[in-house]
């Protein structure tokens, strides 16, 4: 019997342990990336029961005889199953926590990637806006220079207008003097004197022209008024 125990039990024990210990092998054949939690839970419980039975059996055997070994194996299987269930439960909790964290990590990483891409777009848009603004500022400077030139021209015209007004006043005075001279001439010459008639006509035309000039000046002044940008 001792010989049997010496030889058979170790062989059975090693065989059972090696068969039960299928580490790193997913239990779900359809999924190579990881084990199915349900399969692993069952496996853990089963292995717990098997280990418990073996350990219980060995302890029973160590403490007594075959019967002791059988009782030890039975009790060990029950305890092993209970321990296995607890281990499986905790493994499941860790697995669930990991899944939650992995999902959060993936979601946050995706958000960050999207944000980075958005920033890249924003930076490009800002560069384009800066470029457009600079171009507009350049055009504005050129336009302002053009406007300054036009304003200078306007000033020149205003000066000219002022001179015309001044000249008009001079002409007006001369016209008045001529009119006085004509009045004097009428006293010494006959009423039908052709020279006098000619002078009177000339003076009348001159008056019309002065009036026209005044009207022109007024018109120019109005235009100038409208030009005040």
């Amino acid at each position: 019997m001792k010989t049997f125990v010496k030889k058979a039990v170790p062989v059975m024990l090693v065989g059972s342990l090696l068969a039960g210990c299928v580490s790193n092998q997913p239990m779900n054949d359809t999924d190579d990336s990881g084990g199915s939690p349900q399969s692993d839970t069952d496996r853990t419980k089963t292995e717990g029961a098997v280990f418990g039975a073996i350990l219980g059996g060995l302890i029973g055997l160590a403490a007594g005889d075959k019967q002791g070994a059988a009782i030890g194996a039975l009790v060990g299987a029950g305890v092993g199953y209970a321990v296995g269930s607890e281990v499986a439960k905790r493994k499941q909790e860790y697995a669930t926590t990991e899944e939650f964290l992995d999902a959060e990590i993936a979601r946050t990483a995706e958000f960050n990637d999207t944000a980075r891409a958005h920033h890249e777009r924003l930076r490009k848009e800002i560069v384009v806006l800066d470029k457009e603004t600079k171009a507009l500022q350049s055009k504005y400077r050129a336009g302002k220079a053009n406007k300054a030139q036009l304003a200078a021209k306007k000033s020149q015209l205003e000066e000219k207008l002022a001179k015309n007004n001044e000249f008009e006043e001079t002409l007006q005075k001369e016209y008045e003097i001529n009119s006085e001279i004509l009045a004097e001439e009428r006293k010494v010459r006959k009423a039908q004197d052709p020279y006098l008639s000619k002078l009177e006509k000339e003076n009348g035309d001159l008056r019309v022209q002065i009036e026209q000039l005044r009207k022109d000046s007024e018109q120019i002044a109005q235009i100038n008024e409208r030009l005040s940008v």
Partner: peptide, 28 residues
């Protein structure tokens, strides 16, 4: 001899290749 068997089996159990992934690896 019995003690050797108990210790030996314990050593075998501890020698099993394990994984730190809670989704797999079973009891050990």
């Amino acid at each position: 001899m019995k003690l050797v068997l108990v210790l030996g089996s314990a050593c075998l159990v501890s020698a099993c290749a394990t994984t730190d992934d809670p989704r797999e690896g079973g009891f050990v």
